[in-house]
Structure formats: C-alpha cells, structure tokens
Amino acid sequence: MNAPVLQARGLQKSYGPTVALAGVDLTIHRGESVAVMGSSGSGKTTLLHVLAGIISPDAGEVTFSPSAAPPVSVTALNEGARSRLRRESFGFVFQQGLLIPELTAVENVALALMITGQPRDAATAQATTWLGALGLAGMEDRRIGQLSGGQAQRVAIARAQVTGAEVVFADEPTGALDSRTSGEVMDALLWATSQQGRTLVVVTHDPEVAARCSRTIHVRDGRLATQEVSS
C-alpha cells in the first residue's frame, strides 16, 4: 500500500439542524481510485468538498501529503491558501464539467495553467498535448457546445490534470452520460489519474463506475457505513 495522500480525522459538518458529516475518519493512499457512494443527503458530496478544501468542516482535520513537500493541514489554511492549494495541487471534474462555453477546448484547458502564471504559448502547448492524449486531437479549436457530452468531460479531465494535480476530485462525472460514453469517460479518468500514480476520489451513484475504482466507500447519515476493495 502506498503512503497516505489524504487523511481525514473526526470530520463534522452541519447545515442548521441537518448533520452532513458526523465524525468521519478516512485515509486515502497515493495512486488509489476511491468511489464514494450513498443516497441523496447521505453526506458524500459534503465529504468530497471538505477533503478538497472547498468548504471547511465544523470540527476535525484534513491533512494533504504532497509527493515533494511536507504535509499540510488543509483545514488550518485560510481561504487564500486553500484556493492556491486547489489551483496547484488538486483537480476537479463535475457532472456538467463547468467549462467556459465561450472558450475553445484548448483555451479551457490552457486557462488552468495561465492562472498559475504560465505564458499562453506554453500553456496552449501543454493543453494540446493533454487533449491529444485523451483522444481529442483535431478538436482543440471547437467550442464546448460543438462537442458531445463525453468529449466535453474529457476536456474537463484534461483541465484537471494539465497542472499536474496529485489528487483529482470528481462529482458524478458520468451522471449525464449514457452507459457507453460513461465507460469511455471512466477509461479516460482512470488513465489520467490512478494509472499515472495519481489519486482519484469520485462521488457516484453508478455501481458500474464504482466497480472500476480500487475501493468503494459507502456513506450513510454522515458516517462511513461500509468499505469494499475491488478484486
């Protein structure tokens, strides 16, 4: 088993009287692909958002251990530092991709690098390489509306990985896709993350998607109910 890349201890989060996380302990190892499943309102998306530093828990701690730097307490960082961590070390793929429709595929991917200070030409070159690796060569100049749902999700995957993100968080990345396209997107997502030694945390309601991951965590009423390791 590889070293831990994310460790959560005693995570608690409530929204008014609703308890979303009720003392979650979780360790995710480098190179794992972890599926998080649970019914609506179980706390699975809140767990992903706390692990990724998008929201802060009411109590508990998340520690991120980069490959080439000392561990950092995500929960102890201020908002600016968490934003920088998300921008430089984490990648995100959501159900609708959250791509910018006015930009082309290559511009959407290159933007992730340009935000970190890379020049446009260098960012575009890296974005083009990633799009080609994910089967989108020749589609770089298409706007998002000119792509299929599966193609747009591969653009989102390229954007998530072009910065070298060590952990990619995906929230229902195949939820709007048919079963064949869903399989193709999972192929691309796993290739870009765990098959490169990086880590994937994916919230999904689809057992076929979860079965592709190395481990599945079931969340119920804000707690980890069961865990399964794929054979």
Results as ranks from 00 to 15, higher is better:
residue 218 H to P: 01
residue 137 A to S: 14
residue 76 A to T: 06
residue 175 G to K: 15
residue 101 P to F: 03
residue 116 T to E: 10
residue 162 V to D: 00
residue 200 L to H: 08
residue 26 L to W: 04
residue 5 V to I: 15
residue 145 G to N: 04
residue 109 V to T: 11
residue 185 V to S: 03
residue 97 G to C: 10
residue 96 Q to N: 09
residue 18 T to H: 08
residue 127 A to P: 08
residue 219 V to G: 11
residue 130 W to H: 04
residue 37 M to K: 11
residue 46 T to V: 13
residue 60 G to K: 05
residue 102 E to G: 06
residue 43 G to D: 09
residue 127 A to C: 14
residue 122 A to D: 07
residue 221 D to T: 08
residue 63 T to P: 02
residue 41 G to W: 10
residue 65 S to Y: 05
residue 145 G to S: 03
residue 53 G to P: 03
residue 42 S to G: 05
residue 54 I to V: 15
residue 43 G to P: 06
residue 126 Q to V: 08
residue 177 L to V: 10
residue 196 Q to T: 01
residue 89 S to M: 13
residue 199 T to E: 11
residue 28 I to Q: 06
residue 55 I to T: 11
residue 82 R to F: 11
residue 163 T to V: 14
residue 18 T to E: 08
residue 132 G to V: 02
residue 26 L to K: 02
residue 19 V to F: 04
residue 61 E to I: 01
residue 28 I to E: 03
residue 188 A to P: 04
residue 88 E to W: 12
residue 20 A to V: 14
residue 148 S to G: 04
residue 192 A to P: 13
residue 73 S to T: 06
residue 38 G to E: 05
residue 60 G to L: 07
residue 111 L to R: 10
residue 223 R to D: 09
residue 171 D to F: 15
residue 118 Q to A: 15
residue 221 D to E: 15
residue 88 E to I: 06
residue 49 H to R: 08
residue 158 A to Y: 04
residue 202 V to I: 14
residue 62 V to S: 00
residue 154 R to E: 02
residue 10 G to V: 04
residue 30 R to I: 13
residue 49 H to K: 06
residue 74 V to N: 00
residue 172 E to S: 13
residue 116 T to H: 03
residue 190 L to N: 07
residue 138 G to M: 08
residue 167 V to D: 01
residue 112 A to S: 12
residue 214 S to E: 14
residue 222 G to A: 09
residue 208 E to I: 10
residue 182 S to H: 06
residue 169 F to E: 01
residue 159 R to L: 10
residue 170 A to R: 05
residue 152 A to V: 03
residue 199 T to P: 13
residue 9 R to H: 13
residue 99 L to Y: 09
residue 83 S to L: 09
residue 21 L to T: 04
residue 43 G to M: 13
residue 70 P to C: 03
residue 97 G to D: 03
residue 216 T to M: 12
residue 68 A to M: 05
residue 153 Q to K: 02
